[in-house]
């Protein structure tokens, strides 16, 4: 394949191939190669988490949020899932000629509101304007720095057979909320994006509950892709149970109509958490106390069988493999 196609941006297999084949090849270092949502390193003995993310969602305003909220929450969550407390973030705007000031102000205000909600400051930024047609409305990049209040060390290498896999709530809402507003595809629904800052909920969890091994937010590529990222190249597998996977009635109906599988649709306010079975109940009750974790539920177990693979137990007692997202499901959802 000579050119980059939209499928390379899907977060699925081709994205991973591109990252491995080009970025890792040249940027090669042990921190990067951990391929986590944020890099964790120490400066003068103090551990710091650092991450970056770009946002190109279309449309820029959607039920439950906008590109600004997404840009803050996305970076906050990437820091929160490595166990860090987000402190400072940067923002960079690429704006197309002709973009309206009132929309820009709405977006910036939204970023300010959500930064405040998450308890962090936006401390530096940059603005570029390009000619009409050279970008599409507005693109935002945010980078963030987080610190560790408690010395939590998470990592997929800590995961052992018997550990439990928790999902913090209903899946697929973000992808469907954005898709439902897209030109040519509008459907009547009340699906609202789940975009939310998860840092307070996850901090509470790692502070109060032991045995948390790994966390990741299942964004592009959905829960199926994130679970595959966890098992890839590891000596364990994950078995999830179809009947336990939380999907709202509205989201399920929309997926039926559009021929999508909820497991592959993006989320922006959910986390997958791997915890020791001993601490499963404590973790669930801690998560459920937070408004973003009210519907937290155990969806699966880490297994010795099928190492490297994610399997699904269907409602009929049969088992099949759940692979990473292939190809392009929905472009520009974040």
């Amino acid at each position: 394949m000579d050119n980059i196609t939209l499928a390379h941006g899907s977060g699925g297999k081709l994205t991973h191939e591109m990252i491995g084949g080009i970025f890792f090849k040249y940027f090669k270092n042990e921190m990067l190669e951990r391929a986590e949502d944020a890099a964790v390193f120490a400066i003068k003995g103090k551990r710091i988490a650092f991450t970056t993310d770009s946002f190109v969602v279309k449309p820029i305003f959607f039920p439950g949020g906008d590109i600004g909220k997404l840009a803050v929450c996305g970076t906050v969550n990437d820091l929160a899932v490595v166990g860090a407390t987000p402190k400072y973030i940067s923002c960079a705007f690429i704006i197309e000629e002709g973009f309206s000031f009132s929309d820009l102000e709405k977006i910036v205000k939204s970023m300010a509101d959500w930064a405040k909600d998450a308890g962090l400051k936006i401390v530096t930024g940059d603005t570029k304007v390009v000619g009409r047609g050279e970008a599409d409305g507005i693109f935002i990049n945010t980078s963030g720095i987080g610190v560790f209040e408690k010395d939590v060390k998470l990592g997929a290498e800590k995961i052992k057979p018997g550990d439990k896999v928790i999902l913090t709530g209903n899946i697929a809402d973000h992808g469907l909320a954005v898709l439902g507003k897209r030109k040519g595809l509008e459907f009547e629904s009340e699906i609202v994006s789940d975009v939310a800052p998860l840092n307070k909920m996850l901090l509470e969890l790692t502070k109060k509950v032991g045995g948390v091994k790994f966390m990741r937010d299942p964004t592009r590529g959905g829960v199926a892709t994130t679970l595959n990222e966890i098992t890839e190249g590891r000596k364990f597998g994950i078995l999830i149970e179809e009947k336990n996977i939380p999907v709202s009635e509205n989201a399920r109906a929309a997926c039926e109509i559009l021929g999508l599988e909820p497991l592959y649709v993006a989320n922006e306010g959910k986390a997958i958490i791997v915890v020791s079975s001993k601490n499963e109940k404590k973790a669930l009750s801690s998560l459920r106390k937070n408004k973003y974790g009210k519907y937290a539920v155990t969806v699966g177990t880490v297994t010795k069988n099928n190492p490297g693979k994610v399997c699904l137990l269907t409602a009929y007692g049969t088992v099949r493999i759940v692979d990473m997202l292939s190809g392009e499901q929905l472009p520009r959802i974040c």
């Binding site: 269907t314 409602a315 009929y316 049969t318 088992v319 099949r320």
Partner: peptide
């Protein structure tokens, strides 16, 4: 058939 494992059933 594949998704629900009907062959096995």
């Amino acid at each position: 058939i594949r998704k629900n494992g009907i062959q096995k059933m």
